[in-house]
């Protein structure tokens, strides 16, 4: 069982958790939900600046010694990021496409959830009377 947990974790998350060298990677991919965590390899004493390149302009998102940034609340679109290391000694680029699920799919799941919730409420609080009426010879509650 423990092996199963480890295996699933390795297959799903671990490959994304460690950036190679200083390359910038998506370590938590929520592009269909509007969030991503970008990370990069870390060197002692290194300083990093993450910029978003938009309309040929550079917008600073983070400057400091951390080796990851989580961005969320992103609308649909293609985002270009540039990581500068130690004031431009090296730099890496990454493009990310954010595409949210369709509202149709979202409301399908919402409707499914609502139907299940109502069914559960009926099952827990109301249906014993219904089924007792349907099967009068079977007592649904008493242990006997």
């Amino acid at each position: 069982m423990i092996k199963t947990i480890t295996m699933f974790a390795i297959l799903t998350v671990l490959p994304l958790s460690f950036a190679c060298a200083n390359e910038i990677v998506i370590s938590d991919d929520g592009t269909s939900a509007g969030y991503i965590t970008l990370s990069w390899g870390k060197e002692d004493g290194g300083t990093y600046e993450l910029n978003e390149i938009k309309d040929n302009q550079s917008i600073s998102l983070y400057r400091g010694m951390d080796n990851a940034v989580t961005l969320s609340g992103l609308p649909d679109g293609v985002y270009h990021y540039k990581l500068d290391i130690d004031n431009g000694e090296a730099s890496y680029n990454l493009s990310v496409t954010v595409k949210h699920h369709s509202l149709f799919r979202a409301f399908m799941f919402l409707t499914l959830g609502a139907i299940m919730f109502i069914t559960l409420i009926i099952l827990l609080f109301g249906a014993d009377k219904f089924f007792t009426a349907q099967y009068p010879d079977q007592d649904n509650i008493d242990v006997g």
Binding site: A33, H101, L103, R105, F109, L110, M116, F117
Partner: peptide, 12 residues
């Protein structure tokens, strides 16, 4: 309030 992933998340 119409963020699709979060709507899907509610009942989940």
């Amino acid at each position: 309030l119409l963020l699709p992933a979060s709507i899907m998340f509610l009942f989940n």
